[in-house]
Computed example of a mutant assay.
Amino acid sequence: MKKIKVMHIIGRLPVGGAENLLLTIVRNTDRNRFNLIVCCLDKEGQIAEKIRQGGIKLVCLGTTRVRHSYRKIRRLVELLRHEQIDIVHTHLYKADFWGRLVSLLYGVPVICKTEHGDVNSFKNKPFYFKAAEYLCFNKILDRLSDGIIFISEAQKKEFEGKRIKMKNSFLIHNGLDTKRFSSSNKRRSQDRSEKLSKNNIVIGVVARLSDRQKGQSCLLLAMRKIIERYPEAGLLVIGSGEDEGRLRDLSAQLGLDGSVSFLGVRDDIPELLAGMDILVQPSVSEPLGVSILEAMYSGLPVVATNVGGIPEIVRHGETGFLVPPKEPDALADSIIKLIDDPAMAREMGEKGRETVMSGFTGDIYTKTLEDLYVSLLKRKCRNRNYRYADLFEIT
């Protein structure tokens, strides 16, 4: 029977949480049931080649400028018509706006989006997208969409509390593509307690360098207290962003140049995590935190802030420690506690890996998403009597 055609639409494809989740989806989707296409509205980025390597068709429209809106709409309509898409799934705000608007106008049977940010994330968007938010366009598009997928319970409650109650909202926790991680990571994690006892300590943070959301400055302040106790401790800052220069300056002002390394964007995260002892996520806001899942799967204990969806994956005192945001002393104390007790750190790392394996893998996420696709398509076929529904078997 004919496969269900799904088009994922995203603005661009740099290294990031939403982009990596999309990569996880396309790598784990059942190709016997679904035919996937990825449409990138702007330039491709580092994730594009990985998508192509998986045998997925990738189409880049090459523009997100407002003055090119007509051209973008025309090309997207042509693509939808040519590919005969059954389901459109959008990611991030540009694709959520343009992708859903064009798909609704064209009449794509099922339209859904994954909400990757928090309810106030539109404040960082360009002016015309802020205007769209204020004019309730996104609320209208949400109501007209068949599915709004949230990545954590906290995020879902936040949106439903500040916007209209969405009957079409669904919760699917982020999943980690464990195929990216070699078995050597697990073996190397077993030696961490010995490494900690020798004071050869590597602390890491993996996040976009946007201090207002990710809180890296709090970790830099905490490092002063950590280094007073353990002078050989070092911090790896992985990622790039608008605050990189300011964070580098702060590190220098605090006298941490010899202890802090800024590594930029990396595509060898599994290997870097295998060499760390503790993963820290000092976020001010965080819908879930894919880097936390990566660290837990690698056998690392986690110290993170008690915000957003983080408590849904990090169990305080079992797989790591949760601390209030913007409190460097509390952050430092929890990190020092792990360094002081290597056996506890190793046990937390092992429990963290079990947590990911039992509920947060890419296979689990994608299977749940596939079931949702089929459910939404069945419902639309029943409600609207779409003639195309007889062309393929929905099982």
Rank of each mutant, 00 (worst) to 15 (best):
I278L: 09
V314W: 00
G258P: 06
E286Q: 11
V260Y: 12
I292Y: 02
I310H: 02
P325E: 10
P328M: 13
P325Q: 11
I313D: 01
F262E: 05
S259I: 04
L273N: 07
N306I: 05
Q281E: 06
A295Q: 02
V314P: 01
D277S: 13
E294A: 09
M276A: 06
F321Y: 15
L288G: 10
L300T: 01
Y297N: 05
Q281C: 14
I278R: 03
S283P: 05
D257M: 14
L279Q: 04
N306T: 01
P287Y: 11
F321D: 02
P324T: 10
G264A: 14
E294P: 12
G317H: 04
G299R: 01
V302N: 07
V302K: 00
L293D: 02
S283A: 13
F262M: 11
I278A: 06
P301R: 00
I310S: 04
S261D: 13
G264E: 11
R266H: 13
R315A: 14
G255P: 02
F262C: 12
I292A: 02
R266D: 12
Y297T: 04
S261N: 14
L288F: 15
G317R: 07
G264R: 15
S259G: 07
H316N: 15
D267G: 15
G264L: 15
P301S: 03
S261P: 08
E286P: 08
G309A: 04
V284M: 12
